[in-house]
Structure formats: C-alpha cells, structure tokens
C-alpha cells in the first residue's frame, strides 16, 4: 500500500485541489442564486455573505493551487522526453494519441481560465457584500463567470482523470 511521490502530487493536484473546487461550486452557485432581498432578512444576508466570501476566496485560492501544481509539478513528468512518459505512451499508438492531441491539449490550456474567473467572482462578492442582493445585473454576470470557472475546471478535471487512468504519472 505504497504511493510514490509523483502519485502523491497527482492526487493532491486532481483529487484534492481540483475535486474540492468542483464540489464547492454547487454551494457557491446556490448561495449566489438565493442572494435575494425578498428571500432573506438583512441579518440573514450578512450571515450568509460572510460564509460566501470565505468560501469563494477559498475556491479561488484552490483553483490557483490546482493549475500551478498541475502545470509546474505534474505536467513535466507527463511530458518528459523519455519513451516511458505518459505523453510518449499515448502518442505511440494512434488509438490513444487523441487523449493527448485533444484531451491533454485542451486540459492544459482551458484549466487556466478557472482561477481567473473564480478570482473575479470572489472579488465582486467581497466588494459589494450583502448589497449584492440588490444588484441583480451584477449578480447575473458574476454567476455566468462562476459557471465558466466551473465548466473549465470540470473539462480539465474530467480529461485529467481519464488520461491518468490510461497513462498514469508514476
């Protein structure tokens, strides 16, 4: 029951940082959606907002940690110029090559959009605080950014999981 250092980093990148971000999304979206003055009292809004600020900033930090650990720690092992690296393994077979040419190529780029969008959302919620409940327009736009953050992280996460299943970093 041993796990190598590389496997630990892969787990930390995908199953801890990445999964925490994706799981927290539902709570964040529900919080944004229900941030309406006719649904919650003023003191209820204040209480909810302090939780949302903390949660959204935590999500933004986790999103940055996910892309930084993925790009600068795990990715070099994936693309190492040696015949046993996961990238070499995938490209060696036409049946597997698309996991790299489409899956990894998409994942490694689109994942970087998630922390940018998540940071914008965390800032807007912190800036307006409970007054955001009265700003329907702004709330809708940041909900859109939040959904983009989730969708890009989900695309990166799903391909990461599949690629690591087919060609694990060891």
């Amino acid at each position: 029951m041993s796990v190598s250092e590389r496997e630990w980093w892969t787990v930390l990148h995908g199953m801890i940082f990445g999964a925490v971000f994706l799981l927290a999304f539902a709570g964040g979206l529900a919080g944004l959606y229900s941030l309406r003055p006719d649904w919650v009292t003023v003191s209820g809004l204040r209480e909810r907002l302090s939780r949302m600020k903390l949660g959204l900033w935590a999500m933004a930090v986790v999103a940055w940690l996910t892309v930084i650990s993925g790009t600068f720690i795990v990715y070099p092992w994936y693309r190492a110029p040696d015949p046993n690296s996961p990238r070499s393994f995938l490209l060696a077979s036409p049946e597997r090559a698309e996991w790299h040419t489409f899956g990894m190529e998409w994942k490694e780029h689109v994942g970087w959009l998630a922390p940018i969008a998540a940071t914008v959302v965390a800032f807007v919620v912190s800036y307006y605080g409970s007054a955001l409940a009265h700003r329907l327009g702004e709330r809708r736009w940041i909900a859109l950014f939040f959904i983009v953050a989730f969708a890009t992280a989900a695309a990166a996460g799903i391909f990461g999981a599949f690629i690591n299943k087919i060609a694990p970093v060891r």
Partner: peptide, 27 residues
C-alpha cells in the same frame, strides 16, 4: 430600510467592471 443598512449599498460599480474586464482580458 434593508437596502440602506446593507454594507456596500452605495459603492460605485467601476471596480467591479474593472475586475470583470480584467478577467476577460486575461482569458
């Protein structure tokens, strides 16, 4: 009454527009 007592009620929207636009520029 609630609106008047909410934090950030009368904050200008410029910094929020700046953050959104910066997110778009980075992307």
């Amino acid at each position: 009454e609630g609106r008047a007592t909410l934090e950030g009620h009368d904050r200008p929207n410029g910094p929020v527009a700046a953050a959104l636009l910066a997110g778009g520029i980075g992307s």
